[in-house]
Design a protein around this nucleic acid. Structure first.
Lengths: 331, 331
DNA sequence: CTGAAAGCGCTTACAG
DNA sequence: CTGAAAGCGCTTACAG
């Protein structure tokens, strides 16, 4: 026999008070209602005795909070192929959620009949939580806009500029970090470089390019942006043209990075990556994306959004430079 | 301006029907109520026009299930140090949850005030889901018993024998897999071996030992069980005593494995591990724990428990042998 | 100090 | 065929 979980009415009966009184006591008497200590203790004892646990769904429907934060990703939450880059974010998210006493709901994007969908209904389901973290290169603007419009607290992990900046986010400062990489090259005497990027227009890509281009321009350095495939032949041609260093974007797949590394290997060109490749260790010049910290801060911001009106809803975290050994001095 | 999301009452007003009728129509008329096609279309049109999306909280309150499965671990869900062994389980859990249209709640073990606790209250909170997966070497018997007793659906990941077998689980068949490793050694001519294990009495440890000991006994082979630290000196002494192979337990930390590997390296002793070390690749003789499959099957079993009364509530999954290259023929 | 009532947005019998 | 009502378990004014 499945024994029904105890509810407030059961406690009320046991303690000899009304259900509403139970609610007030268990809610910590937020409204400051006057109440005899004896009643309070009786209610608490009864709750304990019955093993009462509030129903979060009912709580959520009647009030606003249930201390659950959603996590919605536009692909599997635990990807099998990009574990390295994604996992640290999850670690940070869980860490901070636990620290702030929030449970986490992973929305698997299923529609209840087993289909993985990412339509509006799936996204709206996130409302069951007090707020939700979103993660993915892509923003389904319409759905997100409806959430934002209804003032549902949400935070994107990664910078977003859709909806005129109305999407709160915690991202990495790729512009500054990428500029710093170029500046390092310039310091080492490089004057002709190439920037190899993938063909993607997510903010994480455009920000990196911007940092590179701006820093190169500021230093008066020749830096062409390349979106095409790179191989040994290309690199040799560059060498002949006076190129001394290649900077390459880092992405989930690391396709561009791997191609560049292979093409440059054995030549005396310097190279640097705008991030830190998983198998690269610390020897590749680049920077460390503070993924765990991003996860932590995103949770922090989300909770602030839920409880109040935080100052800074658009946070960019600094990336630690990795000096590495793949950039040599020129001359 | 916080525009209230449209609800069924709004649709009802627009379509000129009752709210309950709207619910019936939008619910796909599961109960097979007779209804004019005209009414149905009018309701649908109104819903479309208002951009209605059902409120999942209310839906879940009114119906009994919420299609959420809990995941409770007795340490961080995303550990920073044992990512390799734990992550694949999560992948499987999420995969199957998504396939079955279930969201996942990660209970962070927090008490709502930020303290990470693992007392009864924390465990009770799992009731907010339709059922819960538990994971950890250790079982808080009292709390789990209460859940089991109230017929709250739960599944342990990993074999458990507490509560007289009333805890459903999905585990790995370490007994058989470990026995197979010993049999492989015997086939290769080994007659004197040592089994090195850590000092832990979780089922995953005792099962391995049992498999080793039983297989050795069945083959009439000399196999001492060692719980003490192993170093080069120990191994050399074994060698002199005629030992030709060492079998070592695999655990989260791989402490024993790493010690054995270091001690054996460079000698001509064979060795095998009861599992597959993260950095070991496929060259180390051992077996593959089907972690992802365990995650998947655990979700499957949990959902069966929620919806009905599954046959086999204690599932042991076979581990794929890894031949490897660290076992040589004797003589 | 404590209880009765309304309401959150939905589903599900049950009347007409 | 369709509506009125009760109820899911809670919170929050509002009366006494």
């Amino acid at each position: 026999m499945k024994r029904r979980a105890p509810r407030q009415a059961d406690i009320a009966a046991l303690a000899g008070v009304s259900q509403a009184t139970v609610s007030v006591v268990l809610g910590g008497n937020q409204s400051g209602v006057r109440m005899s200590e004896d009643t309070r203790l009786r209610v608490l004892a009864a709750a304990e005795r019955l093993g009462y646990v509030p129903d979060p769904v009912a709580t959520r429907l009647a009030s606003k909070r249930n201390h659950m934060l959603g996590l919605y990703t536009f692909k599997a939450t635990f990807p099998t192929d990009v574990a390295d880059s994604y996992y640290p974010i999850l670690v940070g998210v869980e860490e901070q959620a636990a620290a702030l006493g929030q449970d986490l709901i992973l929305f698997t994007g299923a529609d209840g009949r087993g289909e993985r969908t990412h339509d509006e209904a799936a996204i709206r389901r996130t409302r069951i939580a007090d707020g939700c973290l979103f993660f993915g290169r892509h923003v389904p603007v319409d759905s997100i806009e409806k959430l934002v419009e209804s003032e549902f607290p949400l935070v994107y992990i990664g910078r977003r500029d859709e909806l005129d900046g109305r999407i709160p986010f915690v991202g990495a400062d790729y512009v500054a970090a990428s500029a710093a990489v170029v500046e390092l090259l310039v310091d080492r005497g490089h004057r002709v470089i190439r920037y190899v990027r993938e063909d993607d227009d997510a903010p994480s890509s455009t920000d990196r390019e911007r940092g590179v281009v701006e820093a190169a321009a500021a230093a008066g350095v020749d830096c062409e942006v390349v979106r095409t495939a790179v191989d040994r032949g290309v690199v040799e041609r560059w060498s002949r043209d006076g190129v001394t260093a290649v900077v390459v974007e880092e992405t989930d797949t690391d396709a561009a990075y791997l191609a560049v590394r292979a093409a440059v290997d054995g030549t005396d060109l310097s190279y640097a990556v705008l991030g830190r490749p998983p198998e690269g260790g610390t020897e590749v010049t680049g920077f460390e994306v503070p993924r765990r910290e991003m996860g932590r801060r995103a949770v922090e911001l989300l909770v602030e959004l839920i409880t109040g009106d935080p100052e800074n809803q658009h946070q960019l975290l600094a990336c630690e430079p990795v000096p590495g050994t793949t950039v040599k001095d020129v001359r």
